[in-house]
């Protein structure tokens, strides 16, 4: 099963490599990992997406918690939560395709943020599945480049993951 896990880490050099090293050393799956400092500059927040059966995910959470740099951890998948991922797609946009791609961007509520005679860069934010759907919808052969941030997430309701 897919799990999205949020981790508050000490914003120390090497904290990220401890997490990455843990996943590779123990052979856990890692689909994506994003990290950035928070409003508290001593803390980083990491969101990682992993898959595994219940035992493996339980062990992943225990191992993450065991890292000395880990301050707090929340498995967002355990409750209602919101996930967002940002994507930029560079597409070949010539002749009739220009209008088609513009319409597609509108349908997905995406923005075209760079335009040349032959290309667009489309920015799209949403759940990862929506991003997948957009890629599928772009006519074949037009995609030049895709860059995705990996999902981040936050729990619904007033409870927050903070100190």
């Amino acid at each position: 099963m897919r799990h999205i896990i949020a981790v508050l880490l000490e914003n120390e050099a090497g904290a990220l490599s401890r997490v990455a090293g843990l996943f590779s050393a123990r052979g856990y799956n890692i689909e994506s990992l994003t990290v950035a400092p928070t409003d508290d500059p001593t803390l980083s927040r990491m969101t990682l997406v992993t898959t595994g059966n219940d035992e493996i995910v339980e062990q992943i959470k225990k191992q993450l918690n065991k890292l000395i740099d880990t301050v707090k951890l929340l498995d967002l998948s355990e409750g209602p939560h919101i996930e967002r991922e940002m994507m930029m797609v560079k597409v070949r946009a010539e002749r009739d395709d220009r209008e088609e791609l513009k319409r597609l961007a509108d349908i997905f509520r995406a923005k075209i943020i760079d335009v040349t005679d032959t290309s667009y860069v489309v920015e799209l934010t949403g759940a990862s599945k929506k991003l997948d759907a957009f890629i599928d919808a772009v006519p074949e052969g037009l995609i030049i480049e895709v860059v995705r941030s990996g999902p981040t997430g936050i729990a619904r309701g007033e409870k927050g993951l903070s100190l």
């Binding site: 339980e58 062990q59 225990k62 065991k66």
Partner: peptide, 10 residues
């Protein structure tokens, strides 16, 4: 160590 528990055996 919580991570020792249920690591290999339930």
């Amino acid at each position: 160590d919580p991570s020792s528990i249920a690591k290999n055996v339930k």
